[in-house]
């Protein structure tokens, strides 16, 4: 082993960083008005759409897969899930204030159970 990084490694790294920059420019969520609606998608189809601001919970059960989405006046979060990794629960609460700062933006994604919670603006 001569050195930790070779010139070719640096080229691959630069290529990866360029891809990252391109993805940031192309796919960053566009600025819009303050979010006022929560959309819940299951298996890529709209399952429920509720206005943000009222406290409630929505239970989604399909077969042995179960998710509980909770909302209050400030925002929405995944309260419970029986998926193996529970990352959706750990993704925390989305509010109109933090939606542009989170790694996942305005979404909570449960990959194993294919449930997506999304904060949107509807006129």
């Amino acid at each position: 082993m001569k050195k930790l990084f070779t010139q070719t490694d640096m080229c691959i790294l630069c290529g990866a960083l360029l891809l990252l920059a391109a993805a940031l420019l192309l796919f960053r969520a566009p600025a819009r008005e303050k979010a006022n609606t929560v959309n819940i998608y299951v298996d890529n189809a709209l399952y429920a759409s509720i206005p943000l601001g009222e406290a409630r919970t929505i239970e989604i059960v399909r077969g042995d897969q179960r998710n509980v989405v909770a909302a209050d006046a400030a925002g929405v979060w995944m309260a419970e899930a029986n998926c193996p990794d529970h990352t959706c629960v750990e993704q925390g609460k989305i509010t109109p204030e933090n939606e542009r700062l989170r790694a996942l933006g305005n979404r909570i994604i449960c990959l194993p159970n294919r449930v997506t919670v999304e904060l949107v603006w509807t006129p």
Binding site: M1, L4, D9, L13, A16, L17, L19, L20, A23, L24, L26, F27, R28, A29, Y41, D43, N44, A103, L104, G105, R107, I109, L111, R114, T116, E118
Partner: peptide, 30 residues
Amino acid sequence: LLGRGAVLSYLPALLLAAILTGLLTGLAAK
């Protein structure tokens, strides 16, 4: 599985994570 929009906005975070973890495992393998 989840629809196009949901995932594409997540791509930058995925790519950044890939670069960091790739460096780490590459050095470990070395």
